[in-house]
Computed example of a mutant assay.
Amino acid sequence: MSLYDDAVLVLKGYEGQPELRQVYLDHLSTHPDGMWKACEAGHLTASALVIDPERGRVLLTLHKKLRMWLQLGGHCEPQDPSLTAAALREATEESGVAGLTVLPGGPVRLDRHAIPAPCHWHIDVQYAVVAPPGAVQTISDESLDLRWFGYDEVAEVADASVVRLLEATRARL
């Protein structure tokens, strides 16, 4: 199965946010290249909130280009077998944490947000991954900083989309 086909199946199976989900499906149906960064109309991305439920905290990155505290994630790659695998790969690469596991149940949220030209939209499929006990992070070259924040600190440092992702993740737990 192609990554495109997997994305369509994942989105069709996602029960939340029905209007936004349909926007995603419509985008893919009109843009066969909608999985890839080269699609200037916008492209799917896969992100993951790294969570340590035992210690009540999440790992956020200070994004190098945007200079905002965000969940980890990014562009799908041709070798990614699924959206879930893309989100896990991105979270592992950007956190340096081995042994992350995807929270069962598929995506936690969808978030469509504007980005600078030449592309205009990131059509993000958001997952949550659980960090193993004693996880130690390593800053990647895509980050200015990488830091654990208590659940109650996230709203002080991150935007509303990250807060909504954390709320949805905690509800799933």
Rank of each mutant, 00 (worst) to 15 (best):
D33F: 00
R109K: 14
Y4I: 08
E153R: 15
P133V: 09
P53H: 09
P18M: 08
F149D: 06
D80I: 10
G105Q: 08
A135W: 03
L3W: 07
G106H: 01
R164H: 10
H31R: 13
L88W: 07
D80Y: 06
A135G: 07
P18H: 07
R164S: 12
D124I: 01
G42Y: 05
Y24Q: 04
S161A: 15
A38P: 00
R172W: 04
K65N: 14
R147N: 12
R112N: 12
R109N: 04
D6V: 05
S95H: 09
S95G: 09
A135I: 03
L59M: 10
R170G: 00
V10Q: 06
E142A: 15
C76H: 03
P53A: 11
G99L: 08
P107E: 02
P132C: 06
E15H: 03
P118N: 07
M68S: 14
W121N: 11
A7V: 03
E142T: 14
A87L: 07
S47H: 06
W36C: 00
R112W: 10
L88S: 10
H27V: 02
R57S: 05
A114R: 11
A98G: 14
S140T: 07
E142V: 13
L165D: 01
D159F: 00
V108R: 02
P32V: 03
G73D: 04
L72V: 06
S29H: 11
H27Q: 09
A158M: 11
R55W: 01
H122T: 07
G96E: 03
R170Q: 05
A155W: 00
T92M: 14
I51K: 06
P78V: 03
D124A: 15
P78C: 01
G16M: 00
V163T: 13
L72Y: 05
A85P: 06
R112E: 08
A171Q: 13
S29C: 00
A117V: 01
L103Y: 06
G42F: 04
P118R: 11
D5M: 02
D52S: 09
V8L: 11
E142I: 10
L72K: 03
P104N: 09
C119T: 14
L110M: 05
Y4A: 10
L100N: 06
A85E: 13
L59I: 02
M1Q: 13
Y14K: 05
L3M: 05
G16F: 00
E19P: 06
M68W: 10
G150I: 00
L70Q: 15
